Amino acid sequence: MRLAWVAALSFASGIPYGLFTDLIPVLLRSHGATLGQIGLLSTLALPWALKFLWAPAVDRLGTRRRWIGASQLGLALVLVALAWSGADVSPAYLALIFALVALSATQDIAIDAYTIELMDRSELGPANGTRVTAYRLGWIFAGGLLVAASAPLGWTAVLLVGAAIFLGFAALARLIPPTSVEREPHRPILEPLRELLTRPAIGVAVLFVLTFKLGDLALVPMVKPFWVDSGYSVQQIGWVQTTLGVGASIVGALAGGLATRRLGTFHALWVLGAVQALSNLTYWGAAVTGAQTGMMYTAAVVEQFTQGLGTAAFLTFLMTLCERRYAATQFALLSALYRVGGIAAGAVSGVMAERVGYANYFLFTFGLALPAFVLLPWLRRTVARE
């Protein structure tokens, strides 16, 4: 039953990311937005990178259940507003996207902390396999099924569907069972950060967190524009995500969780991280061969599968670094760090793709994935309780 709650919450957590990385770029590109404008949207992901700033409030005030429910209600309201806004990259439209990300980040803080409190450390590998599977299903639902549904229903209708789903999740949040972890409301507000940042060799861990997903995060903003510019319809894009993508994501995430438990966190980061990095080359191959249907579908499946593999090991590593009583703040900081480099890479992704072409840009993202592996030999001492 605990895994069922983790899965449901993780599905809800994945929907805003699918909206931001897949649906909104397709919507804007189909309405004439430039690659530069779409790339710059990555800067609106800043709340995901800075969520540790208000994570102490989530640790100290209210319950996990209330934070989750309030965030989901806010997401529903933002989606209603987006449904009735024009896709013209206006300041008001960008403000709504920023609000979507900020509410998503707050939801993530509470859900991540709740998961750490709910599960034993020995269960984190399989639990993260379940989390990644459900998260990616939410991502694919928003970035695949809703994108495909936009053809017969229109963009307004699919955004209203998303709003209705979050209203349902907000109601469901009232039923979330409490955890037994006791929090300390009167401790110094910076104590969770001090405890984490004064550990031996934490600097190596921070550099690793910044770079492990960098290639992946740099690739994602240009994937959907590449499909659109290669002549594929929204139905085709959505079909790949919701059929082939779903299967690949489920298999990859569950395999990643099991492999992490069997190999141990450190070895899983080596093996699964390498596979994740190599997957970027499939989109490079698709670009250099003229975006042929077979290569494009292969690239999409490989990307979905390998992201699930690498993310399961990565999340387990982050969670093993967290003290359970400081779960919200410490995990928020660690999970936010890896987005910092991704935001910078995403912000220039459109400009780079326009200047060097999709093929060269995808090859560049593979290179961005390599520095993390230089740090792995020095990382073992920071991996808690292998």
Score class of each variant (00 low, 15 high):
R2M: 05
R2A: 09
W5A: 04
G18M: 10
V26N: 12
R29N: 09
L35Y: 09
L53R: 09
A55T: 05
V58S: 02
L61D: 01
L61V: 12
R66Q: 12
G69H: 01
A70Y: 09
G74A: 15
L75M: 14
L77Q: 02
A81T: 03
S85V: 07
S85E: 09
A87C: 09
V89R: 11
S90A: 11
P91H: 15
Y93V: 06
F98P: 01
S104L: 09
S104N: 11
T106W: 04
I111W: 03
I116Q: 00
R121K: 14
S122H: 13
S122C: 08
G125F: 03
P126R: 13
G129I: 08
Y135R: 08
L137G: 00
W139Y: 15
G144Y: 01
P152H: 13
G154P: 08
V158L: 13
V161K: 06
G162C: 05
F166N: 00
L167M: 13
A170Y: 03
L172C: 02
I176T: 02
S180M: 08
R183F: 08
P185K: 13
H186P: 00
L193W: 09
R194I: 04
E195Y: 14
E195R: 15
L196Y: 07
R199W: 06
G203Q: 12
V204T: 15
V204K: 05
V206R: 12
L210W: 07
T211Y: 05
A218M: 04
A218N: 04
A218T: 04
V223R: 08
P225V: 12
D229Q: 14
G231W: 05
V234N: 04
Q235A: 15
W239K: 09
G245L: 01
A253H: 02
L258S: 11
R262T: 11
H267S: 10
H267A: 09
W270I: 13
W270Q: 14
Q276S: 09
L278V: 05
N280K: 13
A286R: 06
V288E: 12
A299I: 06
E303D: 11
Q304C: 10
L309G: 03
G310V: 02
A313F: 01
A313D: 01
L315Y: 08
L315S: 01
Y326T: 00
T329C: 06
F331P: 00
A332E: 03
V340K: 07
G341H: 04
G342Q: 03
A344G: 11
V348P: 03
V348Y: 06
G350W: 02
E354M: 05
N360W: 15
F364C: 08
P371N: 13
W378H: 10
L379W: 07
R381G: 14
E386A: 10
